[in-house]
Computed example of a mutant assay.
Amino acid sequence: MDHKDHDKVFFANFGAVMAVLFGIFFVCIIAASWISGDEQMSPAAIALVEERIRPVGKVITDPAALVKVSASAASRAPYTGEQLNAQLCAGCHAAGVLGAPKDGDRAAWSQRLGAAGGIDGLVASVVNGKGAMPPKAGDASLSEDEIRAAVEHLLKDAGL
C-alpha cells in the first residue's frame, strides 16, 4: 500500500467537490435572478413590508426622557374605589386567592384591619405589597389616594 500520494488524492477530490458546490451555488443564483426578474415592488407591497418590520416598542435609557414619558402616561382620570376593586382587586379578593381576604368577609377584614393598624396600615400593605400581592397590587401607576379609596370600598363591602 503506497502512502506517498494521499495528499495529492485528497486535494484533487476536495477541489472536485468544491467545484461542484460552487457550480450548484451559481446555478441557484442564476435561477433566482431569472425567477424574480426585474419586477419592482408595488407601493402597497412596500407599505406591507414596512408595517411588518416596524419596531414594536421603544427603549428609553435617558433618565430625563424617561421622566417625561412616564409623566405623560400618568395623565388619566383617577380611579374610584369601586372601579379599582372591579378592575384589579376583585381578581384575587373575590375568590380569596392565596389567602387574600374575600370581598364581604367581615371577620377576615376586621382581623386584617386590626393587624395592620387601621386603614393607614392596610394602605401601606397595598403600597408595599403583602404576601403574594405585589406592590401597588401590580399597577405602579396607582396613586396612594386611589389605593385608599379601594381599601375603603373593600372595608365598606365587608360592613366595616
Rank of each mutant, 00 (worst) to 15 (best):
H3V: 15
D5S: 10
D5A: 11
F10V: 01
F10H: 10
F14G: 02
G15P: 01
V17C: 01
V17E: 04
M18H: 01
A19W: 01
V20H: 11
V20L: 06
A32Y: 08
S33M: 13
W34N: 06
S36R: 10
S36I: 15
S36K: 07
S36N: 14
D38L: 15
Q40M: 10
M41H: 05
M41I: 05
S42Q: 04
S42A: 03
A47E: 01
V49F: 00
E50R: 08
V56I: 13
G57P: 00
K58M: 10
V59R: 01
I60S: 01
T61Q: 09
D62Y: 02
A64K: 07
A65C: 06
L66R: 12
L66M: 11
K68I: 12
V69A: 07
S70N: 11
A73D: 07
S75N: 11
R76I: 14
A77G: 00
Y79W: 09
Y79Q: 08
Q83P: 06
Q83T: 08
N85G: 14
Q87H: 12
H93F: 05
H93M: 05
G96P: 08
V97F: 07
L98S: 13
G99A: 13
D103C: 09
D103H: 11
G104H: 07
A108Y: 13
W109P: 00
R112D: 09
A115Q: 05
G117Q: 08
G117L: 14
D120F: 12
A124F: 02
V126E: 04
V126M: 03
M133K: 05
K136T: 00
D139Q: 15
D139K: 11
L142S: 08
E144V: 15
